[in-house]
Design a protein around this nucleic acid. Structure first.
Length: 761
RNA sequence: UGGGGGAUCGUCUAAAGGCAGGACGGCAGACUCUGAAUCUGCCUAUCUAGGUUCGAAUCCUAGUCCCCCAGCCA
């Protein structure tokens, strides 16, 4: 797996953590599949991310089976997961880990939570628990068992562990808050009783931990620093943190981050749906080459590198997206293009007879495996009077733009001779059953002495020497881009996702080994199937067709993404009305109106700020302390309020008088607008005298001479821009101004602009 | 409806407040012993409305739309 330098929000986080030397600068990630199904292409993104991050930061990545639910998990899946991760190049640190190996430690921590009063045994039924949880609109209600004594809880928990109770008799719950706005935090279940055989721990445990309890502990126990999961777990993070915080201290203390999972068009990704495809016989198994499972994709002939390339291409972000299947196809073709030898095979044969070729003569042509690199090896290909070409390559009445064979036309047979079609042979219904051609004997090897160029080069095989093999032609499994958008996804199955043909391959290919890949020229990339091939009789899976800009498959031209309507036209909003309402509110309040009119403030702006009484009072006090009114209002509302991020003003270490002094700095021109913005952050964090912060940051004292020097430097560095500006491209003022402003951080933009315009003339 | 997230070309993604960039795709051309590959050029975007600023995708305000959460699954 390559180390890619690409950055995204996770590398930003890790960079920041390392800069702060959190966890001693170490990075440990993990890939934690549940062994209850096969890995699919969606997982390849997570694998590439977790293992890639570990490599990129010289850290480590664990492979961990999240096996906390014995009823769905199986050791077969464990093996397939290991194989698939390794195939993708994932090199996990140490042995494969199993959540089940941590059951003793998890249980000990559960007893600790009980002892500390943070967990209790609940003996309600499933229904009662569900009812007690409330819903989005109603808070939950406390369980009647919520206040059991520590001793009773401990006793019950130990008997649960000992196997004294039947499934469902009790559960262990965290004692958090049944009225919590996040439903997950309403006393979540930690353990349930499940008398089931575990594929690994056997019958040692009659109780099993729930995901929300187990997962953070698995991370903490393994020393994971960055626990990366998919977006749907965002809500779980609060509980993740609760568990970590109440079972620690942990060092490193793991943090959960969420990214958008990979969704691909023309396929389904959920384990449930994949299982259904297998169980109901819509495909031939988990490794059916049409399946998006890694096993299926691998058998289809797709190289792991193509999947990693795709992961790289789609990036890592935090919003749900549906990746165009064309991107995957691009990655596959790009990889195979570089990887595969070129061979000759005909899928839908049309016999062709060379009327001027001696009956028994066999020419043995040496054709390079790589047309662009003859030195990279070649093979012998027989050529005889009776040949086979692709039926598609002949048209009796060719359409406009037709370059291939037609009556009276000449084409080149790849690596062999030029042939001209003289006539056709017909069957009983008048259909074309064969072609009569003459060969130009001087064009051996594919070039004519007179230098003429046929309009097309066709693939072909020797009719007698060709080896018939089964070819399985795969296409997309579904006929719509979002099969699971609505209704039953099964009805969108593409009936033509698999068609079988007899390929007539050149003799050299009869010796292909399972897993060997070739490009069948002008047809696509094929791989000798690893399951059904037999010695001397390979079965060919078509991995993907070649890109075709001549005939356009109907599905490519017509299928418009049936994606969810992302309406971009929002309602015309009532922003103007709102402004008016704020202004009216100010007018209606005598005191506010006096304030506005007395200080010359915009009523709408004041009204908006006044909707927060604390801010209004702060503004009043600041005005009292001598703050310039207009500027004070703006800064308070636009910059300070933003920095609050929802916190109340009083939590900041600044007071109205200090704020007034700050605003005066700006009003007096001592601090330029941009400089003031730079001061704001540190000052709001620290409090005290804003002027001192500004001085420490060196934001005072950008004098006129400094500005002139900076402007001159910029003009010297950007001669192109300068001349374009002088030629009339006035928008380049911005670029030059920006460059100058970067040189004199904190200078007053208006001054710099003036200096610039002076200098430009 | 409560909570948590998200919104940039058709698609996927970049842009410490400074020329909205790249890739896929599409279109056109060059080249070609694969109508492939390769090469060139072109196309298309900041959810809406206000505000702050010399300058806003980015900061502020209000809205709109989309996704996730009410399993003893993960």
């Amino acid at each position: 797996m390559d180390v890619r330098a690409r950055s995204h929000f996770l590398t930003d986080i890790i960079d920041a953590d390392r800069a702060a030397s959190r966890h001693g600068g170490l990075v440990r990630t993990r890939f934690p599949p549940e062994p209850n199904g096969y890995l699919h292409i969606g997982h390849s993104k997570a694998i590439a991310l977790n293992f890639g991050l570990a490599r990129q930061y010289q850290g480590a990545c664990n492979l961990r089976m999240d096996d906390t639910n014995p009823v769905t998990e199986d050791v077969d899946y464990v093996q397939s997961i290991e194989r698939d991760v390794a195939w993708l190049g994932g090199r996990w640190d140490g042995e494969v880990r199993f959540a089940s190996d941590y059951f003793p430690e998890m249980y000990a921590l559960a007893e600790r939570l009980v002892r500390e009063g943070k967990a209790y045994v609940d003996s309600q039924t499933v229904e009662e628990i569900r009812a007690g949880r409330g819903d989005f609109n109603r808070p939950g209600t406390d369980s009647p068992f919520r206040n059991r004594s520590v001793d009773e809880n401990l006793d019950l928990l130990r008997r649960m562990r000992a196997g004294d109770f039947a499934d469902g008799a009790h559960v262990l719950r965290a004692r958090i808050d049944m009225a919590h706005p996040n439903v997950l935090m309403r006393d979540p279940l930690l353990y349930r009783i499940r008398h089931a055989h575990h594929h690994r721990s056997g019958d040692a445990w009659p109780i099993y931990p729930m995901y929300d309890y187990a997962h953070p502990l698995e991370d903490a126990i393994e020393g994971i620093t960055h626990s990366i999961c998919t977006l749907e777990f965002e809500t779980n993070r609060e509980l993740y943190d609760w568990v970590v915080d109440h079972t620690g201290p942990w060092d490193p203390r793991p943090r959960q981050y969420e990214f958008a999972r990979l969704a691909l068009g023309y396929t389904v990704m959920s384990k449930r749906k994949l299982l259904q495809l297998v169980k109901d016989g819509h495909v031939e198994g988990w490794d059916d080459p049409r399946m998006p499972t890694l096993a299926g994709i691998r058998r289809r002939g797709v190289p792991a590198e193509a999947l990693l390339e795709l992961a790289e291409m789609v990036g890592v972000a935090k919003h749900n997206s549906l990746v165009d299947i064309g991107k995957l196809e691009f990655c596959i073709r790009g990889d195979l293009e570089r990887r595969c030898k070129r061979a000759l095979a005909v899928l839908d044969p049309l016999p062709l007879t060379l009327t001027n070729w001696p009956d028994d003569l066999v020419d043995s042509l040496s054709i390079p495996w790589w047309p662009n690199d003859a030195a990279a090896g070649s093979r012998e290909v027989p050529f005889r009077k009776q040949l086979l070409i692709e039926r598609d390559d002949f048209a009796e009445s060719p359409p406009d733009g037709w370059k291939r064979l037609a009556p009276g036309r000449e084409v080149r047979l790849f690596g062999a001779y030029f042939v001209r079609c003289d006539g056709v042979e017909r069957g009983a219904q008048g259909e074309v059953t064969g072609l009569r051609c003459t060969v130009d004997l001087h064009s051996r090897g594919g070039a004519a002495p007179d230098g003429r160029h046929p309009s097309a080069t066709l693939h072909w095989v020797d009719a007698r020497a060709a080896v018939p093999c089964e070819a399985r032609l795969y296409d997309r499994l579904f006929s719509v881009e979002q099969p699971d958008a609505e209704g039953d996804f099964i009805r969108h199955l593409n009936p033509n996702s698999l068609t079988t043909a007899t390929a007539h391959v050149e003799p050299a290919l009869a010796r292909a080994q399972p897993g060997d890949r070739y490009q069948f020229m002008r047809l696509g990339f094929f791989v000798a199937d690893t399951v059904t091939s037999t010695p001397g009789a390979p079965v060919w899976n078509r991995t993907i067709t070649l890109r075709d800009t001549w005939t356009r498959p109907a599905d490519r031209a017509t299928s418009q993404p049936a994606r969810a309507d992302r309406s971009k036209s929002g309602q015309v909003t009532a922003a103007a009305d709102l402004e008016a309402a704020f202004a009216a509110a100010v007018d209606a309040d005598g005191e506010l109106r006096a304030l506005a009119e007395g200080h010359g403030l915009s009523k709408a702006a004041l009204g908006r700020l006044a909707s927060d009484p604390e801010r209004l009072q702060f503004l009043r006090d600041a005005l009292q302390a001598g703050a310039p009114a207009e500027l004070g209002l703006r800064w308070l509302q636009n910059e300070v309020a933003g920095a609050l991020a929802g916190r109340p003003l009083r939590q900041l270490p600044i007071d109205p008088a200090g704020f007034a002094a700050f605003v005066r700095l700006v009003a007096d021109g001592k601090l330029a607008h941009a400089a003031a913005k730079q001061v704001l952050g540190p000052w709001l964090a620290r409090g005290g005298d804003a002027a001192r912060v500004a001085a420490e940051l060196g934001l005072f004292g950008v004098g006129a001479s400094t500005i002139d020097v900076a402007v001159a430097d910029v003009l010297a560095e950007m001669p192109n821009e300068l001349s374009r500006l002088r030629a009339g491209e006035t928008k380049l003022v911005g670029a030059l101004l920006g460059a100058a402003l970067r040189k004199v951080k904190g200078a007053d933009a208006a001054q710099v602009r003036a200096a610039l315009l002076r200098a430009v003339g």
